[in-house]
């Protein structure tokens, strides 16, 4: 009897272990699949030509597969979204975490959750119908679908992640720090910006990194507003193509080397994401060790 129960429990234990390891299995599967399907095209095109080639003409008679325009667009676009989105998100977070009346805070938390819950295609649609024509009229350019439009849409889309994570970090600052500063005669604003924010810096840094990850991985909204022409990004008003949109745009009709090259682009994007994840972990760990 005893033996049978033990066997039964061991089997159950095994099943749960298996379920737990599925997550690890998925990550390995994704990594291996992306590497296996991304490498062949890079080998055929040549790593240097692929990464630093400035021309992408996958459907030309003599196709060229240089993805530097996509890489640069993704970097510029993300940097732009951070420049626009982080100050807004950060200031909102400080206000909500430290100064806002309870009712305002509750309302804004709902609003931010709502902002996070809006599907990316809806952002894309509104961007397409409001932002793109708006930019065209304001700047008198032939087409508003541009790097700038993508940056603006992305900066709104990363707001919720930045606000939520910064609020969590700011609320974790020990109250004693702030009390000490207030007791020394600093105003609340001075206290929050010169004491609380520095104390929460690794959490806020993590929030920014999270925003970078969101921005660089976004595909659909960007595809609807950026114009999707593989130009080298030279000005804010140019029609551009991100790493994500390059993959999404051509996937449905591509084949052969072109399709393989798209997988290589995905592999490059994946490497970016892994770097960002590592940075995120670094900052979050820094917060815990404090």
């Amino acid at each position: 009897m005893k033996k049978r129960t033990n066997l039964f429990e061991a089997v159950i234990h095994g099943i749960f272990l298996l379920l737990g390891l599925i997550t690890v299995g998925c990550v390995l599967l994704i990594t291996v699949y992306l590497i296996l399907s991304g490498i062949p095209a890079i080998r055929q095109i040549g790593l240097f030509k692929f990464l630093f080639g400035t021309k992408w003409a996958s459907t030309a008679a003599e196709p060229e597969y240089g993805i530097l325009p996509f890489i640069l667009t993704s970097i510029y676009g993300t940097a732009g979204a951070i420049v626009v989105g982080v100050p807004i998100g950060f200031l909102t977070a400080v206000y909500l975490a430290k100064m806002a009346p309870k009712s305002v805070k509750r309302f804004m938390e709902q609003a931010v959750s709502m902002l996070a819950g809006i599907p990316s295609v809806v952002y894309g649609l509104v961007g397409m119908m409001v932002l793109v024509p708006g930019l065209r009229n304001i700047f008198h350019i032939p087409d508003g679908a541009s790097l700038l439009a993508a940056i603006l849409v992305l900066s709104v889309m990363i707001l919720p992640s930045i606000i939520k994570m910064s609020i969590t970090a700011l609320e974790a600052v020990p109250k004693e720090y702030e009390d000490a500063s207030l007791a020394l005669g600093a105003t609340p604003e001075e206290t929050y910006f010169r004491v609380s924010v520095p104390a929460a810096r690794s959490g806020i840094a993590a929030a920014v990194v999270l925003g970078v990850g969101r921005a660089i991985g976004e595909a659909m909204a960007v595809m609807m507003v950026a114009g999707n022409v593989p130009n080298m990004p030279g000005s804010l008003f140019q029609s551009v193509c991100f790493l994500t949109t390059a993959v999404a745009k051509e996937m449905s009709y591509s084949s052969g080397l072109q399709k393989q090259a798209l997988f290589s682009i995905a592999l490059v994007l994946f490497l970016f994401i892994m770097l960002i994840n590592a940075a995120l972990n670094f900052f979050l760990k820094g917060d815990k060790n404090k």
Binding site: G20, L21, T23, V24, C26, V27, I30, L34, G213, I216, G217, E218, A219, T244, V247, A248, M251, L262, F263, A266, L269, F270, I273, M274, I276, N277, L280, N281
Partner: peptide, 18 residues
């Protein structure tokens, strides 16, 4: 397992699609 879960939640949906 926890690291894997974190990694999964950071992967963009276009890569999941592929």
């Amino acid at each position: 397992i926890e690291y894997a879960a974190e990694t999964l939640s950071g992967i963009p949906s276009i890569i999941y699609g592929l």
